[in-house]
Each structure stands twice: as structure tokens, then as C-alpha cells.
Design a protein around this nucleic acid. Sequence first.
RNA 1: GGUCCCAUCGUCUAGUGGUUAGGACGCUGGCCUCUCACGCCGGUAACACGGGUUCGAAUCCCGUUGGGAUCACCA
Length: 471
Amino acid sequence: MNPAIKPIVTRFPPSPTGYLHIGGARTALFNWLYARKTKGRFVLRIEDTDAARSTSQSVDAILESLTWLGIDWDEGPYFQTQRYSIYNDYIEKLVESGHAYHCACTPEEVDRMREEAKAKGQKPMYNGKCRNLNLTGGDHTVVRLKTPDTGVTVVEDIVKGPTAFQNSEIDDFIIRRGDGSAMYNLAVVIDDITMGINTIIRGDDHLINTPKQMLIYAALGADMPVFGHVPMVLGSDKARLSKRHGAMSVGEYKKMGFLPDAMINYLVRLGWSHGDQEFFERDDLIQKFDLEHLGRSASMFDTDKLMALNAKHIQKKTPEELAGPLVFHLKELGIDAKNDAFTQGVVQTLQPRSKTLVEMAQGAAFYYHEEVEWDPAAADKFLTPDVLSVLELSAERIEALDPYTQEALEAAFTLILEETGLKFGKIAQPLRVAVTGTTVSPGIFEMLLALGKEKTLKRIKKAVRFIQDKA
RNA sequence: GGUCCCAUCGUCUAGUGGUUAGGACGCUGGCCUCUCACGCCGGUAACACGGGUUCGAAUCCCGUUGGGAUCACCA
């Protein structure tokens, strides 16, 4: 198949009944990647025909999450609620061609049929009562597809392999409700046909719908798309991912300080592989993604691994790229920061030691505070009379530094060490506590540099006074 | 229950008849070191079970077991 002649067209069709969750994001990602890789098109379609559960807030949230992940669409979003007349045209066609028929049976009647069938140990199916009655429709009449009684429908699934379903297992399912609205299986097929979708990658909870949908394609004489059903993402107890497994919406992961690139990297590896490679950047992924290496078995979501990947992506990014998102997370901590040279300097010191942006923001807080806030225990242990003179000397030497660079700082302390005969370990912790307030921080020199001369001096001097007062 | 799908370290996976079964996360020993990290070196740990096919099976077939999905005038 020459892609120049027949471009790949994929789609993502979320139901706006909640936020974009992890599993949905992964499905969207697979479709998007495949479209991008093949230079095809990616269509976004909102399946909002369930009026009771669909909300516009959900639509907004889903669009926002996709945008955050960097998954962009070439067409849409289309809304199924705006396409009812299209579905009806096709349903009429199906009735006229004899592939579908009106059915006047009430839901109660159908329930009874199912009960009776069950009682006889048979499958609970519609018994085809109206099948050959040639009803012409009317109030509360539904339309059913006339499905074959014999033979098999084989889904040539590109991830599961060929999967056969006995047509006798498929009953004459409803394609249009009594109120005139189209049912899911019909709407999906008509949408996919009219939108030119030729590659459908979706969760394997849809695998059982597929033969029904294929029957509609066949009845319409339409080209069959390529199907690929990827396994579900499970929670840590191997049950389908749900709220009780913790965060499941993409938005929550943004709040927790994950990078979109890390999310994408993690999600794609959940069910797809490229040999031993674990770390992928966007462009690399678009280039390497394929359908051949999609996995067939379900996988569990593992936050630890996401975390590790996030740390790697944080390390790979430039301070410029990270400063913006960091500002957002600093704001969450009540810190007003800007994406400027100062923040970028801060980022640089924290990059190798932050697994998330939240962690980075917490580690960065001390840089922004007007006054140092010492951890009592740390101050008690390290801001002691025996380091008073070194701290004073440090302040003196730092004050004289011009220019204030990391090299100059290192040189100044090398000299102090020589003069005093102290080991660096002796003065590093007191200095760290004096300036940051805690015993944990980035390396002394890079940290003093990022903090700036003025704040550094102010804090060391404050520590000196603190020790003097204590004495 | 019927139908369908799935099965390699705890987790994500590589593997497509012949490998000391590889990598990553986690856990862990060590190195590095101004703290915490990063990084580097090493360790731990898997082919669910039973039958076949084959000179030879993680790889192919069947069964068992165990998971999952689905059985609507929801999507």
C-alpha cells in the first residue's frame, strides 16, 4: 500500500463523560503516533450521543489534556450529536436494501424473549419476530440490522491476529432507537466511513463489537478498515484501572509534576516496544513507532517507572524549557516566580535531583524566600560557635568577589581551607544550613551562584548573628 | 454461565526452534562525594501447569489453571 496514494487516517473518539484517563490517552497516542509516522491524518471525534452523561466540561477537559500531551488533531473535533441526519440517511438505505428492518417489539417483549431463551438454556437474543414482517416504521419503532444466521465473521486484527465469531452468536441488534436516534455501533461505523478512517486502534473491550460493526460495513458495501485492539491498562491489583487505583486522569499527572514527554514515553512503552529502548523523545517515537510491536497482553500502570522516566526527561530538558512549568508549580506553593535567568539558574541546580516538577518546586522554594527559614534541628546542629569564625571569613571573602562566578567561589573556598586547615566537610554543612535552611540542597557552589551574591551574604550574616546571640 | 482475548523476573518488556533467557523500574552491595541526588560497577529475580510435534522448545499444537473483556432502545 503506497501511503502517497492512500494515506493512513486514524481517529480518537472519546465519550465526554469524564476526564481523559490514562487508558484513553494511550489509545489516542497510538493513533496519533501512527498517523504522524505515516504522514497520514488524525481525526478527533466526540461521541456525545449519551445525553445523560455527556458534558461540555468533559469535552474541554479532554481537549486540554490532549493539548497538554502534545497530541494534536488534523480534523475535528466532530460531534456525533450534530450528525444524526447522516446516520438516518444510512439507516434508510439499509432498510431499503433489505439489510435492516423496523421492529415494533417493546423492550418488555424483548426482555421476555431473552428470559425464555435463557430458561431453555439458549443465548438471550432477540428472536427475529419482526424480521420478515416488512413493517414500515412508526412511533417507538426501532430499526434492527438483519444479521446472518450462519457463517463466521473474522476480524483480521493486527494485534490479536484473526479472531472468528460465529454469526449465530450475533443477534439482530438495534441500530436506531425508538426515539429516532442512532445506536453506538451504527454511528461509529457511519462516522468512520464518512470520515475516511481506515485504521482503527482501540481498546480490546471493543473487540466483541467489531464483528457487529463489520456486518454494517458489509451491508453497506463499504471498505473494511484495519482493526487493531490493544489490551487494557490495569491497576496494581490487575483489575481494570479505576479511581481506587489512585490518579487516573491525565490532568492529575500534570498537577503531580510530570512532563508531557515523560507521560508519552511511559504510556507508549505500556504495550509497545522497540527492542531494549526505554527512553524516547517525541521525534524519535514518531520515527520508530509501528503497529507490529504492539503487545497482546494487558499491562499494569506503575507510577515508579513513570517517575524514573520523568526524572530522565527532566535531566534532558534545557533550563529554559523547564522554567515555565516550574513557575506554575511554584505558584502552587504560593511562590511568585518568573521564567527568567534567575529561575533558569535555579532549575539547573535542581535538574539532576528532581523526579517531578513538584519536587523541584519544593527544592527551589528556599531560593525565592526573602528570609531564610532554618529548620530548628538543622540550625541547632550546624550553626554552632565553632563555625562562627569560618562563616564570618566566608562572608568577607564572598563579599570581595568580583565577578561572582562558580570558579571564583571555588577558588575563594580553596584558599579558606588552606588558611584555616579545615576540611571542606567541616564547613559545607554549616554553610548549607545557613543559606538554605536545611541539610539537603544542590552542591554548595552551584547553589550559591544561583542564589546570588546579595542573598547569600545576607543569609550568612544572619547565621553569624544567630550564633552570636545564642552564645 | 455463553462468547472472545491474554499468560517471560514483583512490574514494563526483548525474544519469533538451538541464547549463560537480554534490558528497564523496584529492591540491594559497592564506587564517586560538601548533604541529597545524578552517574558508574555488581547482585536479586521469570518462561503458570500438563501433554504432544521436533534431534532440540519461552518460541508451534492441544488441554488445564489463572487473569481480563463482553453479553442494553450505554458508549
